[in-house]
């Protein structure tokens, strides 16, 4: 599968199943555009011009590459040679009006070299549905991972073979197939501690029901926090890095408990050989010198909730008396960032139908001095007045492109900033396991309520259908856990033809549930925006490389 796109003056070609990414000139792009839908052997036939007897894996003499496959008697022949020949002639005729024949041949040879190096026209293996699994012996699913399809022979041809909904009605059979995927040791390595089901703000778009998750207000006792840390260590198997997020509601309402929990976890590090990473998400109201000093010392990341312009922010983020919070929190955030020494911080905003022009909010955050920014589309039922509309989606995609252009411009001016969803690591990104498994919710990551109950994700804590157990008895709803073991890229039918599948890993299950009522559902608007963000992120990478 190939995704070719043009953005911000760059021609990009993404070879989905190898992960290769190429920036190409206009001529090469025109050839790829014409051939991107054809199978590998047809592409080879067209590019070589040897359509009378095309060897699907043999390299023509014109290509110089160390990795060309050896010619053997097992190569298959392409049968529709006349069609291939016509396609080649049609392509050359079309291009000849704009390019010299020698240039066209040179471009085709360059594409041939990439193809023989498995950097273009890579295909999924037809039997295993995933090229990596069959070709590389160092990736052994059978020894390390469970995959129902491999061990139990479950069909992957579109049949509906699984009904793992745990009896709770959160899964529809039509959207998925059975393929469990995850570490066989069942390790839990991350907990989101909802230390406060209470909030000093009353943001109307809050997924947490303005802080108390549609229940009664509660703060997590210190003893529960310590038990949660013990639970995490006990269930972490051989994992070295363990993560604890302090979340809410507003976690600073339970600040002494946060500090004691961190101290307790740190006391276990030398005894257990574990290393804890802590994060904090706050609305900023209660930030003071003590919070700044402690987070600087102990938190690997702090997420600061700020939506942008004052009018934007104060539209939704109000206190219990309906007063906006912008004027209170901005100076506190600026001071926290000014004193920041160790870990990262993100100013994280939400944009809605009311500010689809969110780029202006990003620019405002830059004017305030913030340079690590995240701005996320609201996730809500479609009947909410702030929900994004189909017209908004079109406009937001334009905003994303303008944002990417601004990032390139400011980097060239030596005034760079980061935008969370454009930070694609091409040198040291996630491995194929991680790309298939996704975020790990419900398996290696769980949320803990103030009373110690366990849920698969912080965004599903208000729904009793997702109660998984508690930190004293462990996972008791094993059927639901099994559902989450099946929540991966391989199980999602809708993702199979999507070029971005190995960047989003099937997307956020909680978002899918909130928009479709099905954990395996597809948040169409979310997918469309994600793909645009990936294109923007890749175009920014192209600019970085070509500017050198």
């Amino acid at each position: 599968m190939i995704h070719a796109f043009q953005l911000l003056g760059y021609n990009l070609v993404l070879d989905v199943y190898s992960g290769s990414i190429h920036v190409v000139d206009d001529l090469v792009y025109a050839i790829v555009e014409r051939l991107k839908e054809v199978p590998r052997d047809v592409a080879l036939a067209v590019l070589t011009g040897d359509s009378s007897s095309v060897l699907s894996d043999a390299a023509p003499a014109v290509i110089s590459s160390d990795s060309l496959p050896a010619l053997t008697e097992n190569h298959s022949f392409t049968n529709n040679s006349a069609w291939n020949s016509n396609l080649r002639h049609e392509l050359i005729d079309t291009l000849s009006s704009r390019y010299k024949k020698s240039d066209i041949e040179e471009a085709m040879n360059a594409l041939l070299a990439l193809t023989y190096d498995d950097k273009l026209f890579c295909e999924k293996d037809p039997s295993e549905k995933w090229c990596v699994f069959n070709q590389h012996q160092n990736l052994s699913i059978s020894n390390d991972l469970e995959c129902d399809r491999k061990h139990r022979g479950i069909q992957t041809d579109g049949s509906e073979s699984c009904s793992r909904d745990g009896g709770n009605g959160v899964v529809s059979q039509k959207n998925h197939e059975s393929c469990a995927f995850g570490k066989a040791d069942g390790a839990i390595k991350a907990l989101c501690l909802n230390v406060a089901h209470a909030c000093n703000l009353a943001c109307s778009y809050c997924f947490a029901g303005q802080g108390n998750y549609k229940g009664s207000q509660a703060l997590m006792p210190v003893e529960t926090g310590r038990r949660a840390i013990d639970f995490l260590v006990e269930h972490s198997a051989a994992r070295h890095y363990l993560e604890v997020d302090f979340f809410g509601g507003e976690p600073l309402l339970n600040w002494p408990m946060v500090k004691e929990t961190v101290a307790y976890a740190r006391s276990l590090e030398s005894k257990t050989g574990k290393r804890f990473r802590f994060t904090l998400t706050t609305n900023g109201i209660l930030i003071d010198d003590d919070v700044i000093d402690f987070t600087n010392r102990e938190m690997d990341n702090v997420v600061l909730s700020l939506d942008g312009r004052k009018a934007t922010h104060d539209r939704f983020r109000v206190d219990r008396q309906g007063r906006g919070s912008y004027d209170t929190i901005v100076p506190k955030f600026q001071e926290l960032v000014r004193q920041s020494t160790g870990g990262t911080h993100y100013v994280r905003g939400t944009f809605t139908h009311a500010n689809a022009d969110f780029l202006n909010d990003v620019i405002h955050l830059l004017e305030l001095g913030f340079t690590q920014i995240s701005m996320e589309p609201v996730v809500s039922p479609t009947d909410m007045p702030y929900a994004l509309t189909s017209d908004d989606i079109v406009f937001i995609k334009q905003q994303y492109e303008e944002l990417a252009s601004l990032m390139i411009q400011r980097r060239r001016e030596d005034r760079p900033f980061t935008f969370f969803h454009y930070m694609i690591d091409l040198e040291k990104g996630p491995c194929i396991y991680k790309r298939i498994a996704g975020c790990g919710s419900g398996t290696e990551y769980l949320a803990v309520t103030p009373t110690g109950d366990l849920y698969p994700c912080h965004q599903l804590v208000d729904n009793p259908a997702f109660l998984m157990g508690n930190i004293w008895d462990g996972i008791t709803n094993t059927a639901l856990q099994d559902t989450y073991r099946h929540l991966n890229l391989l199980s999602r039918k809708a993702c199979r033809d999507c070029w971005a599948q190995l960047y989003c890993s099937g997307g956020c299950a909680a978002n899918a549930f909130h928009t479709t009522g099905d954990l395996f559902g597809v948040d169409e608007n979310g997918c469309e925006l994600f793909r645009k963000r990936m294109e923007c992120g890749l175009a920014i990478k192209a600019a970085e490389v070509l500017d050198v």
Binding site: N138, E376, D425, R435, C439, S505, A510
Partner: peptide, 15 residues
């Protein structure tokens, strides 16, 4: 252009 932190899309993460 060979077998990590928990991610929350609301998967740039960096052996």
């Amino acid at each position: 252009l060979r077998d990590c932190q928990t991610s929350c899309q609301s998967v740039n993460q960096a052996q």
